[in-house]
C-alpha cells in the first residue's frame, strides 16, 4: 500500500495574496489531502470564512480531499462560533481540541483527530473513533516505537497520518510572543506575524538555533523530517504523510516525497529548502532537537 501525501494546515500568517497563490499552486501538487483554516490565532483574518470555503471548493474541484482544521486553543465564544460556522459548511474537520470533537460529534461530521489531541494509547484512539474520528495524527513527540505500540493496541479502524516534514508546533499559549517581541499587546498586535512568514527564530545566548516564535505558537527552530525514515514508515501500515507548509520550497519538498514514495530517484536539496537544518530525534524516542542517522 502506498502512503498518500497531505498538505498540513498553514501555521503562519501570510498576506492574503500569498496565501491564495500558495493554494493555487498546491492544487497541482501531488498531495491527496489539503488541510485548510486557521489553527494558531483567532485574530488572523487575511482570509475570512468565505475565503476558506471558496478555497475548499476550488481544491475539491481539483480532486483534493479538503479538511478544515480547528484552532488548537479554543478560548472565546467567537472561536467556538467561528468553528461551528465552518464545520456546518465545510465538510470534514480536523479537531485539535476536545471542544472541536464535541462540535463534530454533535453535527455528525466525520473528523480527523489532530496531533494536539494527545492520543498516546489505543483506548483513547478507540474512544475518539466512537465519537466519529476516521483518521488520526499521532502526537508529534510520539516516535516509531510509541506509534507502533498505539497501533497494536487500538481496536478501531481509522487511517493514520504522520507529521513527516515541517517545523514542529511545540506549544500553544494565550499569550502572543510575536506581539511581546514588539512590545505590543495581543489585542493591538498590528498583525506583526505578517512580517515573519516562517516565524521569528529564538537563539540561546550561545547562538544555538533553538525555537521559533509564531504568534501564540512556539515551534522548533529546525525542521523535523522523516525523509530518511521513509522505508521504515512504509513498513508500518500507515496511510498518510503530512508535509507542513513553509514560506518557500513547499512544492519542491512535496515533489521530492512523492517521487520517493513512487520509488523514483528523488533529487532532494534540503540544504537549500530547509537551511535551518533537519532534526528527527522524536522519531527515535529521543529529544526532538536531535538528528540521528537512519539505519534502514
Amino acid at each position: 500500500m502506498t502512503m498518500k501525501l497531505t498538505l498540513g494546515p498553514l501555521l503562519y500568517y501570510w498576506p492574503r495574496q500569498q496565501t491564495l497563490d500558495f493554494y493555487a499552486a498546491a492544487a497541482n501538487w501531488p498531495v491527496d489531502v489539503v488541510y485548510l483554516g486557521e489553527v494558531v490565532c483567532g485574530r488572523r483574518h487575511e482570509l475570512r470564512d468565505a475565503d476558506w470555503l471558496a478555497l475548499a471548493e476550488e481544491l475539491t474541484t481539483a480532486g483534493k480531499e479538503v479538511v478544515i482544521a480547528s484552532q488548537a486553543l479554543l478560548e472565546s465564544s467567537s472561536d467556538l462560533n467561528g468553528l461551528k460556522r465552518l464545520a456546518e459548511k465545510g465538510g470534514r474537520l480536523e479537531a485539535n481540541d476536545l471542544g472541536a470533537v464535541k462540535v463534530a460529534r454533535d453535527l455528525g461530521i466525520p473528523f480527523v483527530a489532530g496531533p494536539h489531541l494527545n492520543i498516546y494509547n489505543g483506548q483513547t484512539l478507540d474512544w475518539l473513533a466512537e465519537q466519529g474520528a476516521v483518521r488520526w495524527v499521532p502526537p508529534l513527540e510520539a516516535g516509531k516505537a510509541a506509534l507502533a505500540a498505539i497501533l497494536a493496541e487500538k481496536t478501531c479502524t481509522v487511517e493514520t497520518e504522520v507529521f513527516a516534514h515541517g517545523r514542529l508546533p511545540l506549544a500553544f499559549s494565550a499569550r502572543c510572543f510575536t506581539a511581546r517581541h514588539y512590545n505590543l499587546k495581543k489585542d493591538s498586535c498590528e498583525f506583526r506575524c505578517l512580517n515573519h512568514p516562517d516565524g521569528l527564530p529564538i537563539n540561546t545566548r550561545e547562538g544555538q538555533d533553538f525555537l521559533r516564535i509564531n504568534g501564540t505558537q512556539t515551534q522548533s527552530a529546525a525542521c523535523h523530517s522523516l525523509w530518511g525514515a521513509l522505508s521504515q514508515l512504509q513498513g508500518m501500515n500507515l496511510d498518510l504523510l503530512r508535509i507542513s507548509p513553509q514560506a518557500h520550497y513547499t512544492g519542491e519538498i512535496v515533489a521530492a516525497f512523492a517521487a520517493a514514495l513512487a520509488e523514483n530517484t528523488a533529487p532532494a536539496d534540503f540544504a537549500q529548502w530547509n537551511p535551518e537544518g533537519l532534526v528527527n530525534g522524536y522519531w527515535h524516542g529521543n529529544a526532538g532537537i536531535k538528528l540521528e542517522e537512519e539505519t534502514t
Binding site: 511545540l170 506549544a171 526532538g288
Partner: peptide
C-alpha cells in the same frame, strides 16, 4: 503555555 499542549520539554 496551555497545559497539555506543550512539548517544549521533550523537544530538548
Amino acid at each position: 503555555m496551555a497545559e497539555g499542549r506543550c512539548i517544549l520539554s521533550s523537544y530538548a
